[in-house]
Design a protein around this nucleic acid. Structure first.
Lengths: 305, 305
DNA sequence: GTGTATTTTTGTCTTGGACAAAGTATTGAC
DNA sequence: GTCAATACTTTGTCCAAGACAAAAATACAC
């Protein structure tokens, strides 16, 4: 018999935690944690408890804590760090959001899907996205960082949002509207939901969207922009994307793209950018998107043909 | 200025080829290939040509060739081994696939989308996926590996496939069919297309699918499987996922999941697995999926309530 | 406050050796 | 001849300790 699932080899820990083997080994050397057992061959075997703690540490690091501090803390101190942060959801009526969150937590996706559809019809796409989806995505991200929900709940939520948007857009035939907008993210930014949200908003505003999906290198964005003759390249940054990487990427893109092509950068990740990047329009809030759009249309009156 | 993309550091090569850093280094030591340049710091810089050849070698390995032989061959001999693959999907003529590929290359996604819809209606979901989508995805992956198309074309293709599947499934109300199947990938496997394809196939076969999206850690898959009470966990592996990581991950999952929950593993990434993993059903080909499904239903006759 | 220089932290890369698991070849029984 | 057990070869992953640059934090000047 024995109970083999009590410990994992280093490769599995890498997969489960997202921490590289090199990092795991160097932490052990420097900080004394994690300190795995060894098999007869001398290879590391991480007890499940240590793996769980590593997951927790990783999550706290994503929230801005530094490994040097975290790895020296004991379990209680770690848990204490997990608790606060609870105070901030300003804008939206907390009560309604709580109701939505409860659906996310309870995995009742049939009810969630049904409620989404109802609210979409009731409010229209624009208000639905602004009042519900946007805040809810932020709330879910926050709940995940605070360990109130797991990866599983977050994934399920994302999938159903995606399904909802794609179904809503399914019936809409693409008009030859202007501007033509390319939607994507830079390499390293995996979050797709923001893009779909923007696609939905723009489509109902008679924009012609070209959805490229996430993680396109700058050089390929340029190729795409030229091949599909877009007027605007719109990028989305989630809150986990490093601000400096975003600024660098936007600058690179601006340089590589013809001056006639506008660049819009949106999402929670751009809120941290203090100094604006030359030739790039920041869209920190959903509402700014419409402003930008109106602005573009004003500057580019419809030419015949 | 400069030309930064001419060579890649080892981490990028690992990501692009699915070969681990350790493997890349040990091949260099043993066989003399790949033999990367070095930057001032002494770190490896793989020229693009070597990376492409590595991708080719990886593909040939998945077809059963052994690295010891392949790494000693020159370019011509490698290409010779590569060629005879064309006849693998007899149901679809190479000519027709070429026509599809041409659409991918020309970025004409309106035509592509229209043609997809027509073929879906004409053939039905099952034949459409088996005869067209499956081979086409393989073909696109291959073209990408050979550098015949860029990231941009590949992304655009993926997005339109995704759109197609999601639109096709939009109208179908989920029946309370059995088995209930959880669809996801392990951390590190980003490819979503395979999941959607399987979801589409299963949905029309009256299965109840739970799509979790990509990159779920094993522990969260287990939570999800229990919460959603699924009968089967179905994982997809693309060709860039390392075979040994797949085996390790499947073993970890098998151990963590109740014995009553079946595990199905599909995609091009499982073709390289020689020795079956205890308690995991391999689905190397699309057709095997239906066989597995029939098998499951036979073993679990519908109980009333 | 805002910007620049200095120090610390941190992750990734390096080498060469070791070993077991998987794959191939050989042997021997029937 | 087939099949199975045995010996040999191939192959990927792991280990150790050292090195270094990019990022973050701190100190300092304005």
């Amino acid at each position: 018999m024995s109970s083999p699932a009590l410990a994992l080899p280093i490769a599995s820990v890498e997969r489960e935690t997202g921490l590289s083997k090199d990092t795991l080994r160097v932490w052990e050397r420097r900080y004394g944690f994690p300190m795995p057992a060894r098999d007869p061959k001398g290879e590391r075997l991480y007890p499940l408890a240590q793996v769980q703690r590593l997951v927790q540490i990783k999550r706290l690091m994503d929230r801005g804590h530094r490994p040097g501090k975290l790895l020296l803390l004991d379990e209680a101190a770690l848990d204490a760090l997990d608790a606060p942060l609870a105070s901030e959801h300003p804008e939206t009526s907390t009560q309604q959001l709580d109701a939505w969150m409860h659906l996310v937590e309870s995995h009742d996706h049939e009810a969630m899907q049904a409620l989404f559809r109802r609210e979409l019809i009731r409010r229209g796409m624009r208000r639905f996205v602004q009042d519900i989806v946007g805040p809810l995505i932020a709330r879910v991200g926050e709940a995940w960082a605070r360990n109130q929900i797991g990866v599983f709940e977050e994934h399920l939520f994302s999938q159903h949002m995606e399904k909802l948007f794609r179904e809503a857009l399914a019936g809409i035939a693409l008009a030859e509207g202007r501007p033509r907008v390319l939607l994507t993210t830079l390499s390293g930014e995996e979050h797709t939901l923001g893009l779909l949200m923007v696609e939905a908003l723009l489509t109902v505003e008679d924009v012609y969207p070209v959805l490229l999906g996430p993680q396109t290198p700058v050089s390929e964005i340029v190729r795409a922009a030229i091949a599909k003759q877009v007027d605007v390249v719109c990028l989305s940054f989630s809150s986990v994307y490093s601000t400096s990487l975003a600024v660098q990427g936007l600058a690179d893109l601006r340089q590589a793209l013809p001056a006639s092509t506008a660049i819009w950068a949106g999402g929670y990740g751009v809120k941290g950018i203090r100094k604006p990047v030359e030739g790039v329009d920041m869209i920190p809030e959903m509402a700014d998107l419409f402003e930008r759009l109106a602005h573009w249309r004003q500057a580019h009156p419809a030419e015949e043909k």
